[in-house]
Design a protein around this nucleic acid. Structure first.
Length: 259
DNA sequence: CTAGTATGGACAA
DNA sequence: TGTCCCTACTAGC
C-alpha cells in the first residue's frame, strides 16, 4: 500500500480529524512511549506528507516523523474512545476520531534541524504542488544508473514506489534497464506530468490505478498495465519480470524491451 | 488454517 | 546479503 499517495492520504485524514486541537498521544506498544508522553495534549499544528514520509508538527515544538516502510499502516476509529489495537506504536486521539499507527519502519521525534535535513534528502514529490518538475528531470538525467533505479531513488523523486515505477515506465514505453542519462528530457518531463496525475488519482481513490479507461472502482490488480500482470494489459503480450536491486521489475516484452 | 510474498528502507555483517 | 518492522492479502492445504 504505502507509496507516496498513501502518505498524502493519511496526511489529509489526520489533518481533517486532528489538526488545530489538543491531541492525546500514547504508545501502547511502548517503543514510542517517552516521546508520546512529551507530546500528549499538544496541538497538532501541521500534518504533511513528503514522498513516503509523514511529518506531524506539534505545538510542543517537536515533529513526529513517520515512515511506514513496507507494512506500516494507520487505522482510523470513528470513536475517539476506541481501544487501541495491541502493538500500536502511536495512538492519537482527537475530538472526533482516533488513530493507531501500526508497524511503521520509522516513528521518531525530530528537532527542526533534523526535519530540514530529512527534507534535504528528498527529490521533488509529484504530489506536492510546489514541487519543481524541471529539477526532477535534472535529477533523473543525472542519475548514474538505469532509469528503473533512478525512479525508486527517493533523492531523485520522492514518493514513487515499485508499482508507479513499473506503470509509468510502461505508459511511456521506456525500458527500465536504459541508462538514466540516455532517456530524453522530454520523456522525463512527460513522465513527471503523468506521475502528478496518476498519483493524484491514487490519493483520490486510495489505490494505484494506471489504466486511464478503467473506472475508479476497478479492482487495482485489473487497472494496471504490467505490474504483477500475467500479460500486458496494453498489447496482450508477455510481461517480463526480473529483479533489480532486490525489487521486482516488470516490463512489456514487446513494447518496452528492445531485445 | 499456514506459508509465502511484498507497494521500503535502515542497519549489521 | 540477511534481518527487522506486533501487517495484509492471497494461494494452497
Amino acid at each position: 500500500m504505502p507509496e507516496g499517495h498513501t502518505l498524502h492520504r493519511y496526511a489529509a485524514a489526520l489533518r481533517a480529524d486532528l489538526a488545530g486541537q489538543p491531541v492525546r498521544a500514547s504508545s501502547p506498544q511502548g517503543r514510542f512511549a517517552a516521546e508520546a508522553g512529551t507530546l500528549d495534549g499538544a496541538v497538532l499544528e501541521r500534518a504533511e506528507a513528503y514522498g513516503k514520509n509523514l511529518l506531524l508538527e506539534f505545538s510542543a515544538g517537536g515533529t513526529v516523523h513517520v515512515h511506514l516502510g513496507l507494512r506500516g499502516l494507520f487505522l482510523r476509529y470513528d470513536d475517539p474512545a476506541a481501544e487501541p489495537r495491541k502493538g500500536t506504536r502511536l495512538h492519537l486521539v482527537g475530538d472526533r476520531a482516533a488513530y493507531d499507527l501500526i508497524a511503521p519502519m520509522t516513528c521518531a521525534l525530530l528537532e527542526p534541524g533534523a526535519v530540514a535535513r530529512l527534507l534535504a534528502t528528498l527529490g521533488p514529490d509529484p504530489l506536492r504542488p510546489e514541487a519543481d518538475g524541471e529539477e526532477a528531470v535534472r535529477r533523473l538525467r543525472a542519475h548514474p544508473r538505469s532509469v528503473g533505479a533512478a525512479l525508486l531513488d527517493q533523492s531523485v523523486l520522492a514518493g514513487v514506489g515499485n508499482v508507479y515505477r513499473a506503470e509509468v515506465l510502461y505508459r511511456h514505453r521506456v525500458d527500465p534497464r536504459a541508462p538514466a542519462r540516455d532517456v530524453p528530457a522530454a520523456t522525463y518531463a512527460a513522465m513527471w506530468e503523468d506521475l502528478r496525475g496518476l498519483m493524484a488519482r491514487g490519493v483520490r481513490v486510495g489505490s494505484i490505478l494506471t489504466v486511464d479507461e478503467a473506472p475508479d472502482d476497478t479492482p487495482p490488480e485489473q487497472a494496471r498495465y504490467v505490474y504483477k500482470q500475467p500479460a500486458c494489459r496494453g498489447c496482450g503480450g508477455p510481461v517480463r519480470t526480473w529483479t533489480l536491486d532486490g525489487r521486482d521489475c516488470y516490463a512489456c516484452d514487446r513494447e518496452q524491451l528492445a531485445d
